[in-house]
Computed example of a mutant assay.
Amino acid sequence: MTHPSLTHTDLVRYTGVALLLVVGGIHLQQFEGPLRPVPTIGPLFVLNAVGAAALALVLAGVRGDLARLTALAGIAMTLGGLAALAITRVTVLFNYSEPTLRPAVTLAAVVEVITVAALSTLVLMDDDIQGATGASGSGRRPK
């Protein structure tokens, strides 16, 4: 029995999985730390963590168009988090503002930008995301 080898697309997909888990972990840590008592924002951090974990789980288990769709959902969730952070830096969102760029906030922003880049790469990759090489053996999707 032969085992399929990992493709470049698989490596990018698994990188996206790991980054989504890191994003979720940072949000969960921030909820457990300073944001637990903050109404609305605290529970939204938990939802972000749960959503990131769910998307990571799905992304780890699917290929093809479902992987692309999951990556798009991850991009949307991550950009939503970045937009909310930007809003809280300049004004108030749900009665909360982020007065300083704490190290955890900076780390979260950096990881989220990298996550968007990795997931965008997955969406735009020309490799056959299903890992099959087809008749030509090129590993490329038909145009």
Score class of each variant (00 low, 15 high):
D65M: 06
T91R: 07
Y96F: 14
T133W: 15
V110W: 08
Q130K: 14
M1F: 09
V105T: 14
N48R: 02
V113R: 14
L93D: 01
T15N: 15
S138K: 03
I129W: 01
A83D: 14
G74F: 06
T15K: 11
G16T: 03
V58A: 06
L28S: 10
L44G: 05
L6Q: 11
A60C: 03
G42C: 05
G33Y: 04
I129L: 14
S5W: 04
S138W: 01
G137V: 12
V110E: 11
V116D: 15
L47Y: 10
L11Q: 14
V92E: 10
P103H: 06
R89K: 15
L19W: 09
V46Y: 04
P99Y: 10
Q29Y: 13
A60S: 13
T7S: 07
L124E: 10
R36N: 09
T40P: 00
T40K: 04
G137H: 14
V58Y: 06
G131S: 08
G33L: 09
T106W: 06
A135N: 13
V90T: 13
G131V: 05
G139L: 04
K143M: 13
G81K: 12
A86V: 07
V113I: 15
A135F: 11
G64D: 10
G131A: 10
T7P: 00
L21R: 12
E112D: 14
A135Y: 11
F45N: 02
V62A: 04
G61C: 10
N95D: 12
A76C: 10
Q30M: 10
R68K: 14
Q29E: 07
I87Q: 04
L20S: 07
V23W: 00
P43N: 06
L28K: 03
R13V: 06
L69G: 14
S97Y: 11
R140W: 08
L20Q: 13
L11V: 02
A135G: 10
I41C: 02
G131Y: 11
S5M: 07
V105I: 12
V17Q: 00
V105Y: 01
V46P: 00
A18R: 08
A60V: 09
G74C: 07
Q29K: 13
V123S: 02
E112W: 04
A135K: 14
L119R: 06
G131D: 03
G33S: 13
L85T: 12
I114Y: 13
M125R: 06
S120K: 12
D128E: 11
I41L: 05
R140G: 08
N95Y: 02
E32M: 15
L101S: 05
A104E: 15
L122D: 01
H3M: 09
G139R: 09
A60Q: 02
V12E: 03
T78G: 09
G64L: 00
G80T: 07
I114E: 11
G81A: 05
E32R: 13
L6W: 11
L28M: 09
G81M: 01
V111S: 03
V111M: 13
A104Y: 03
L93Y: 09
A56H: 01
M125K: 09
L35N: 13
L101E: 08
S136D: 13
D127R: 02
V123L: 12
L82Y: 12
D128H: 15
G64W: 00
L93F: 15
P43T: 04
A71M: 03
A54W: 05
A18T: 08
L72W: 06
R36F: 05
D127I: 08
I129Y: 08
L57F: 01
V17T: 01
P37S: 00
G42D: 07
G74W: 11
L35M: 12
